[in-house]
Amino acid sequence: MPRLAVPLTEAQIRALEPRAARYCVADGNGLVIEVMTTGTKVWRFRYSLDGKRQPLATIGDYRMISLRVARAKAQKYAEMVARGISPVATARRDRGAESKADVLREAAELYLATEMAGKSEEYRRTTRRALEKDVLPAIGHMPVKAVTAADIVAICDRIKSRGSPKMALHTRNVVKRLYEYLIARQLAAGNPAEVVPARSIATFDSRTRVLSGDEIGAMFRSIDASSIRRPLKLALHLLVLTMVRKSDLVESTWAEFDLDKALWTIPAARLKKDRDQRVPLSLQAVSMLRELHETRASRNFVFPSVRGDDRPIAKSTLNQAVKALGLDVEHFVLHDFRRTATAHLREMTAHAEATDRGAEEVPERLRQSTNAEKAADQRRIMQRWADFVDAQIKDTRSA
């Protein structure tokens, strides 16, 4: 009988590193994973017949076979061995059959175990929740190639009937990314979610789009955990903390900042206005700017182009960075940061002027502060907003 072993987890398997010589780690019931010197990991089945240890039977590549599928195969082969039958011929015939993830539930598990392994905890959690709550109960039993656009629409309609159109759209996008993964690995021929228009599920007026506290936290956790360049991460944080226009930030120069006084003065000429705009900086913003200053690659621009010439990054750079992250924040554009800030400030501030006037007027009020009292009030509001953003990020991380 195979020796008992402590069952492995996906995290433990991902952490296995190659050595000078290949080695095996047991999962139990004869199932082992062999780690090659190249780093490739292969599922194998260890067994004995007539009291003699037999050569390992190959199950398949870990990248294409989930832990659950490998265990199912090992159980199948163990039952054959118990009847005195060698599983080698059977393993050779059906090798890769289950790894092709013909059933959507197995395909989803393979996707979560491999493609999602390098994503942030929050991203993995929301993806798994969408699959397990609504997708797999409805179509998890179906062959991957049998799922149609009508199946996806039915799932989304059920979610919308609960009063959650945004979740319906999020779920459609999860299925779309799952099928993109399967198509890339030749496990599916078409993407049933791709032909379902997003606007047929949920629509949002971009002129009134305001991110919730949870969305703010989830977004910046994903940004922090991403592989985009550090200066771009800081730029996105500063964009929400300072509440300025994107072009004002990406074209900023070091001469405009007085970090000791925590003040950013945007020249009237650059704004094409009659007067300068003074932006008080929160403690968080100052910290980020000091980091950028210490590692600056340009004497003039805070966010210089990586091409080496002395000019700022393109205005589209931050949009492209956000798009590349694949964030699950529906119908969001960077300009929504300003509207989001003013909307939340209306709720947070205790000053009557901030609560009585429209949300879009708050930044204008801040910009028009002229005397010492209003300047101090402006600085308190900016710090309150930065603290609020920090709180949302911390709440998401502890979820």
Score class of each variant (00 low, 15 high):
residue 3 R to S: 09
residue 10 E to D: 09
residue 16 L to E: 09
residue 25 V to A: 10
residue 25 V to D: 08
residue 34 E to V: 15
residue 36 M to C: 09
residue 48 S to W: 12
residue 57 A to T: 13
residue 57 A to C: 15
residue 59 I to W: 02
residue 61 D to V: 14
residue 64 M to C: 09
residue 66 S to C: 05
residue 69 V to G: 04
residue 72 A to F: 07
residue 78 A to P: 11
residue 87 P to K: 12
residue 87 P to D: 11
residue 87 P to C: 07
residue 90 T to K: 15
residue 97 A to R: 12
residue 99 S to G: 02
residue 104 L to Y: 02
residue 107 A to P: 00
residue 110 L to R: 01
residue 114 T to Q: 03
residue 115 E to Q: 01
residue 122 E to P: 06
residue 124 R to Q: 13
residue 126 T to H: 01
residue 132 E to R: 04
residue 143 P to T: 12
residue 166 K to N: 12
residue 166 K to A: 11
residue 168 A to G: 07
residue 183 I to N: 03
residue 187 L to E: 01
residue 191 N to V: 03
residue 192 P to I: 03
residue 202 A to F: 02
residue 206 S to V: 11
residue 207 R to Q: 10
residue 211 L to Y: 00
residue 212 S to M: 00
residue 227 S to L: 06
residue 230 R to N: 09
residue 233 K to F: 00
residue 240 V to L: 10
residue 245 R to T: 11
residue 247 S to A: 09
residue 249 L to D: 01
residue 250 V to N: 06
residue 250 V to S: 04
residue 260 D to Q: 10
residue 264 W to P: 03
residue 287 S to H: 12
residue 292 L to W: 01
residue 299 R to W: 13
residue 301 F to M: 06
residue 306 V to C: 01
residue 308 G to N: 00
residue 315 K to R: 08
residue 321 A to I: 03
residue 325 L to M: 07
residue 337 F to E: 13
residue 337 F to W: 12
residue 345 L to W: 05
residue 347 E to K: 05
residue 350 A to T: 15
residue 351 H to P: 05
residue 352 A to R: 11
residue 353 E to M: 11
residue 355 T to M: 04
residue 356 D to F: 08
residue 357 R to N: 13
residue 359 A to V: 07
residue 368 Q to Y: 04
residue 377 D to F: 10
residue 384 R to I: 03
residue 385 W to G: 06
residue 385 W to T: 06
